[in-house]
Amino acid sequence: MTRALDLPDAAPRPRALALAAAAAGALLAGRVDRAELVTQVRELCLRTIPVVLLALAFIGVVFEEHAAHEARRALVSLDQAGPMFFELSVREIAPAIAGIVLAARVGSGIAAEVGWMAQSEQVDALRLFGRDLAAELYAPRIAAGMLASMLAAPLGIAAVGLAGGFWAQAFSGGHLAAFVSLRLVTAHDWALLVAKSAASGFAVPVAALHCGLALGGTPDGVARSTAAGVVRGTLWVLAADVAIGATLWWIP
């Protein structure tokens, strides 16, 4: 593809860290394009939350099946596992699965859109006209991604607990109440949930923006940046998960 808009300084492509820093700066300074923010929030939240709920409901049933199987084997009541199951959803399952779905939905959406913008030289045009990319392109997507993530995780917890609980009550002789019991959930668990959701919400859009900008200029750029955006986003979600889990391990 010939580039109609060849820039004299060969259009620098930002590195992921520089991009994250620029975006964080714009967000903290409140330099966010409002109209774009509204569009992205609508787009990304609507795109993500239903899928998170669906995925976590499935996962809730799968884990309940495992729990029921093990409970039968160890001859204990399934209801004893319920509160543990719900605690595990809060600290681990909901943030991890929500993060992976976020990487698939938000990540692919942003990477495809920005990759297309880079390929059709809209990004170069923005740079050429001296527009603030951090405020107009990065910050709205990252803010919307974080919002989607912070909304998806608590809703997702409810989905896991309710789906697992209903399944247990209907098919395994357990009780719904045990599977949505907050008895074992501590402040530590909530802190893990918030930290993990915020990290996914930030890392996924950054990875997707970076892949879109870096790969979008190539002929099959949109497809490549979409796939790479999802993969990097997933890796960052898992890495953040391990890092946060290990860090909070040392804090009682």
């Binding site: 495809a112 990759g115 497809a223 979409t226």
Partner: peptide, 8 residues
């Protein structure tokens, strides 16, 4: 554009 759509 179908190429990106297919991936998603």
């Amino acid at each position: 554009r179908g190429v990106g759509a297919a991936a998603r």
